[in-house]
Every structure is written in structure tokens, then in C-alpha cells.
Design a protein around this nucleic acid. Structure first.
Lengths: 299, 299
DNA sequence: TACTCGAACTGACGAAGGCTCATCGTCCCC
DNA sequence: GGGGACGATGAGCCTTCGTCAGTTCGAGTA
């Protein structure tokens, strides 16, 4: 079966005869006749009854032609979609962000992107496991990556968006809430909510605690920053997360820390990135990636 | 553009590489590579980015593939609709049997099928070379396959019809004809008529001889079981063939062997097989696929 | 009843397409 | 640095699709 045969069959049904259909599609009558018969032979059914004045679809033929029409229409759309690819973007953009990054900035940028390209679909992966992020990057299935360091896949173009500070999340009633800025050593006796061990964010926490010579107890390990914030807010322990990872309604339970902890935010694009990817990058640049000082002033 | 190209493109997207997709669809890698590039050339867009580990759909490619999937699915439905809707089947059924299999059973089943569907034409290929059988199966041109093992193409549905015993064919006047059953080791000094080396049937003989620690001389290698039987009957050597491969008039020169040799008979259908194929399958089930004991009693 | 016309079908042949096979180039990993 | 995996290229062969010339069949008309 082929699209060509479908087109021929549809043309015969519409024109009422092979001869007229052949003329419509600019082929010789025997060619179309052979194609119709070949199709019928392959399917093992009679799609058209032969009459002296032309061909008439059988009941089975009509059922067949309905689906054939769907197939031919979809093929036309496929072609049109592909051809229009550079003119009016549609298709799918795949974005991956290390967990907790850009949680506040992505929605705004994506909304603006959607406004510009209404038929573009964006899929966002939030990956706790940086190894998984690297794997996806290596497979080349990601159009844009938000990371805290350059992808191991050096073929990606890295663009520095800003630096994001971490904030500590304390339970309601925690004595340190009285302060505007919490010194990390004051949290040495508190239990901590940490993250999955293979995750980049837990690497940051591990490094921060080690650098400040702290070895607090780990009360829980979680996969998502939202979970960590929630559990810390409930007083299970304290946790340290990027400022943008703090859900609305929890800001009052967060404080900047001393010494300050921050990490760069990198947007990585594949070489040869298209207009949609580059538009998203520019929109992300326009978002604020500032320090906690601005964050605290806004609230 | 063609449905075949759509299927190739979808397979590449799913498998992640041309090589893997080619394997999935049983074509050579260069063929699929060419088809993908031809499609891209015709459309004038890049559907896939090339990476060292395979192809990755571009955003435009993904959009294209969504419509391609619709087209391919509709084509499948068109085919199934046509096949299911036929009140009176006509067309062509293509059956392939490994040489020697079903030689007695196929005619009866096909006669019954012809009675039921008078306008159906059936073409039967008897293939000595199992590689050729596999090739035809891969091309998808076979509606039903008779084999001794499952097709390498796992997309075929395998149906176990029975087990068929092999019998030894002896020359007229051979001393072992005095026995009702011949022990294989008694034939160690006889010359053997074997089959083409790439054939499945010769694989069976090779395994049988090896398992019984026999290394008789090979006096001839032939392609067809009928030829082997004929030459054995003439006393050129002995041979071992499926019971159903013994032509009428030669039964008296055959004997079951000990240890018994048998092989399963598998009928394989394509998924989405139509009523004609399924009717043939049922008719084949109704045929006898029993051991030689029944065969000997019948004569 | 015979003739004409319109339509589908058949066979031969050539051109184009699709496949395999052998091979090469590139990239990545050990 | 070498081997393996992957995509691309070229040659050759087979299949498919098209045209052309001709045949067959059925309906309508004189």
C-alpha cells in the first residue's frame, strides 16, 4: 500500500472513472488502473465495482476510502508542517532544568515564548539527578538545559544567566527566625533535610557543610526541593535551597545565610539551535537571576 | 513522500539510530539512511540532527512525526477495515513453507480454502533455503509461513500445528527394511544423501548425526526432499526426511528411526492477518500432523 | 441486429526508485 | 592509539511505475 495508491483510489471515487481520475492526476489511464488493481489484489478485497461507465466504490471500498482519506490528509499536514517549520514554528521544544533551578523564571519566559509561537509545545523535565540530566544531554534530546555548571557534553553552548543564592528554610517558631541573616554554624545542632545523594543540589549542601566544618545529622533525604521546603517548614529539620525554589507562602520561613552560598545558573543550547531555542534563551536572560538581597526586598 | 518513509522516520525516532531502526524493520542500514535523507531533501528541512550515537529529531522533525504517525495509523486501519469488511474474499494469499513441510497437508487445506473462497488465489513457495524464507518473511510479502521454528521476525504470530517425525528412506533391498524401526547407529556405515548446507533441514540432519555420534559419508547434497527420497530409494544412500515429504509410492521404503527424530511445525501469521489467512490456519490445524506411527498404520 | 463509442484491461518496454553489499569517514570509549 | 559503533557513499541489481499500442466489453443508436 502506498499514499499514491490511496490518492488514486480517492480520485477514482471522486471522478467516477479511472479515465477521468487519471486526467485529474495527470497520469495515463492504464497506470491508474494497474495501481487500483494492485491495491485490491494486495488487500484481497474489491474496492470498486466495474461498470461500463466507470468504477463505483463497494461498501468495503467506501469504508476503506474513509481511512485512506485520513492517511492522505495527515500526510499533507506532515508535509506542510515540515515545510512551514522555519516560517511559523511549531513542534516541540524539550527543556531540562536541574531541580530547583529557574522555578520562578521559567513560567514567565515560557509564557512569553508561547505568545510568540502559539503552536510550539514545550516539555520541561525537572531532574533531581544530574547524571540523568547529563545522559539526556548526551543523547541530544534536549533543546535547552538549565544547569549550575557547564554540561559535560561540551558541544553545548553555555550561557551564564546569573548567580542564585541559597536560603535556609526554618520551621515555624525556630529561634533563628528572629535574625535577618543566619550564620551557618548556628545550625550545627539542627537536624537537616538533605537530598538524594546523586543529585547536584546535595553536592552543593555537602560542600557547604564541609567547608564550614559542620556535620549535622541528616533527618531525611528527599528528591524534590518542594518536599524539602515543606518538611523544613513543618519543623522536621532545616534545609538549604536555591531562593527560587521556595514556593510562595514560605518566604517568611527563609533567611539568607552567612557565609553566603550561591551558584551560577547556566543555560546550555545545542549548537545549531533554532529560533525557538534562542528566543527562549533571550527570554530567560530577561528574567531576574539576582541575589537574595533583591528577593528579600521584594517581600 | 511515502508511507514507507514515514514508517522509517518513526522507527528512527523510536529506536534512536538508523542502525537500530533498520534492524527493527528488517532492511539494510544504508537503505533506511537513504530514505531518511531523501525525505528530508524532498521536504527541504532537516528532520533529524546527526549525532555520533544516532539521530535525534529536530523540533520540526517532531512536529512532522506526529502527523506521520497519524498517516501510518490511518493506513493500518484502512487495511484492516478493508480486510475485515470483505464479504467474499478475493485477491492473493502468499504462503511459504520450508521445504518438505506440509507437503501432504497443504493441498487438502488449500482445496478447502478454495471451496470457501473461490475467487481467492493462493501462491505457495517451497523454500529449500531457510535464509530465503526469512528474507521473504522480512519483506512482509508472506501471509502465512510454515516453518520448523519461530520466524526470526518476531512480529509474526506463531501457531504450533504439531510435531512431525522424520523417517529414514532406504534403498530397495536394503537389509534394514526387515525391521519395523531402524536404529540410527545401524546406518553409520551407509552413505547419506544430505541437503544444501544452508538449509534448515540439513541443520536437523547435522544435529541428529552429531547427537548420535555418527559421521557417515555424504554421497550427495541436494536441494529438494523429493530428490533426496528418490535417490535414496534408488539405493544411492540413505536419507532422513519429514514423513510428509515422502511421495506416494515410496512409503514402503521408509522406516521410523530410533532415537526418534521430530520437529515442531509452526504456522506463522502476520499480525493483523485477515480472514483468509486465519481460515487457512484453522484448516491446517484440522489436518493431521501426527507421528510416523499413524503414518505407518495408514498405509 | 450491427455498428460505434466510451471505458477498462493487457502486454511490452523504458525510466526511476529501492534494496543489498562493500566500503569509508567520524566520533567515542577503553 | 586502536577498536567499535554509527551514518554516509557508490556500485550493481531487482522491483516498481509510467507510457504506448492494442484488445475486450458493454451500452446506445440507427
Amino acid at each position: 500500500m502506498s499514499l499514491r495508491q490511496f490518492e488514486y483510489a480517492l480520485a477514482v471515487a471522486e471522478a467516477g472513472s479511472v479515465t477521468a481520475a487519471a486526467e485529474l492526476l495527470h497520469v495515463a489511464q492504464p497506470s491508474m488502473s494497474q495501481q487500483i488493481r494492485s491495491l485490491e489484489r494486495e488487500l484481497g478485497v474489491t474496492l470498486f465495482d466495474r461498470t461500463p461507465t466507470g468504477l463505483v466504490p463497494t461498501a468495503v471500498g467506501r469504508a476503506f476510502l474513509r481511512e485512506a482519506e485520513v492517511a492522505v490528509s495527515a500526510a499533507r499536514r506532515a508535509r506542510a508542517t515540515a515545510r512551514a517549520g522555519a516560517a511559523e514554528l511549531e513542534g516541540e521544544l524539550v527543556v531540562a532544568a536541574q531541580m530547583g533551578l529557574g522555578t520562578r523564571q521559567l513560567p514567565g519566559a515560557l509564557t512569553a515564548l508561547r505568545n510568540r509561537y502559539p503552536r510550539l509545545e514545550v516539555t520541561v523535565f525537572e531532574e533531581p539527578n544530574s547524571a540523568e540530566l547529563e545522559r539526556l544531554a548526551r543523547r541530544g534530546v534536549l533543546d535547552l538545559v538549565l544547569n549550575t555548571g557547564p554540561c559535560d557534553d561540551h558541544s553545548y553552548e553555555a550561557h551564564h544567566l546569573g548567580d542564585e543564592e541559597f536560603v535556609v528554610v526554618l520551621g515555624a517558631g525556630h529561634p533563628q527566625l528572629a535574625k535577618h541573616r543566619v550564620e551557618l554554624r548556628e545550625l550545627a545542632r539542627d537536624p537537616w533535610v538533605r537530598f538524594d545523594q546523586n543529585s547536584r543540589i546535595d553536592d552543593v549542601l555537602r560542600d557547604v557543610l564541609r567547608d564550614n566544618e559542620l556535620a549535622p545529622a541528616t533527618v531525611a533525604r528527599v528528591s524534590q526541593t518542594a518536599t524539602a521546603v515543606q518538611w523544613a517548614a513543618h519543623g522536621l529539620g532545616v534545609t538549604l535551597v536555591p531562593a527560587s525554589a521556595v514556593p510562595y507562602g514560605h518566604e517568611h520561613l527563609t533567611r539568607p545565610v552567612f557565609p553566603a552560598v550561591s551558584q551560577p545558573i547556566i543555560a546550555a543550547l545545542q549548537p545549531g539551535a533554532g529560533p525557538a531555542e534562542r528566543a527562549l534563551l533571550e527570554l530567560l536572560r530577561q528574567e531576574t537571576w539576582y541575589s537574595t538581597a533583591c528577593f528579600a526586598r521584594a517581600s
